[in-house]
């Protein structure tokens, strides 16, 4: 039996690594990959909690709510990756760069 704490530590490590990647890498594609890693870390936590859910005290039934959430997360991540990668392509076509430091027009 895997302790829930260890699953949560794995999830937190993946999330923290993704956070470091978002803040440290300047290539927009690597920033997107880091965001996917953070989503993946959250998925690990959801599936871990799903395994240790307490059964419904009334009828003893267990619904896989956490796994359904992960299903939705994967769908949202796919949509996000498609749109964000097209934005990166448009950025490269227009400005000939994918370095996020070169695209700071909206920064105060």
């Amino acid at each position: 039996m895997i302790p829930l704490e260890h699953v949560l530590v794995l999830s937190g490590l993946l999330f923290a690594l993704g956070l470091c990647g978002v803040m440290m890498r300047r290539n927009v594609i690597l920033v997107l990959m880091s965001i996917e890693i953070m989503l993946n870390g959250a998925n690990v936590a959801l599936i871990g909690f799903n395994k240790y859910l307490i059964a419904n005290p009334v009828d003893g039934s267990v619904a896989p709510d956490g796994q359904v959430f992960v299903f939705f997360t994967i769908a949202v991540a796919a949509a996000e990756a498609a749109v964000a990668l097209v934005i990166a392509m448009a950025l490269f076509r227009r400005l000939d760069t994918i370095n996020v430091d070169d695209v700071a027009n909206l920064r105060w």
């Binding site: 895997i2 699953v7 594609i29 997107l32 990959m33 996917e36 993946n40 998925n43 599936i47 871990g48 799903n50 395994k51 796994q67 992960v70 299903f71 994967i74 991540a77 796919a78 990756a81 498609a82 990668l85």
Partner: peptide
């Protein structure tokens, strides 16, 4: 290992397959 068999398949097909090919 955490009993999410369908999601493991979806992870390999959608994430490791489709999304990473897109990248």
């Amino acid at each position: 290992l955490l009993d999410a068999f369908l999601l493991a398949t979806v992870q390999v097909l959608v994430y490791a397959g489709a999304i990473m090919v897109l990248f």
